[in-house]
């Protein structure tokens, strides 16, 4: 893929990924075929900031986990009153990292 396209993608989407993974993503994209550019634009990326807000207000019911795709953990959170309230609070700090991690995994799935 052309370097210019890779740079555009990184510039617009860097907030969705862990900063230490950006060089890897850049490398992955430049090795990918040009025809995949449109496809990677369609990968649904979860905004970590929105996830934090959802976690703050709906984390008690596991809604944050349901939205990022960890359905099983969402059910666990819902059934246990947000893990006795502890898991809810832990997730306020974890959810942004987990959203970025899953965005990277989704991008990888699309590229390979």
């Amino acid at each position: 893929m052309e370097q210019q396209k890779v740079d555009i993608y990184i510039a617009t989407n860097s907030k969705y990924f862990e900063s230490h993974l950006i060089p890897q993503i850049s490398d992955m994209l430049s090795r990918a075929d040009d025809s995949k550019f449109l496809m990677i634009q369609t990968v649904s990326l979860k905004d970590p900031t929105s996830m934090l807000l959802i976690s703050l207000f709906g984390g008690h019911f596991g809604i944050d986990r349901f939205i990022i795709g960890d359905t099983g953990l969402g059910v666990g959170k819902l059934l246990t009153c947000g893990g006795l309230g502890i898991w809810t609070i832990v997730d306020w700090f974890m959810i942004m990292g987990r959203a970025r991690e899953l965005n990277y995994a989704n991008l990888q799935k699309m590229l390979y």
Partner: peptide
Amino acid sequence: SVCLFKAATGLPCPSCGS
């Protein structure tokens, strides 16, 4: 009670009472 929702709103959550 350790329910954050109950503490914040005064109403029970779906799993309160479990």
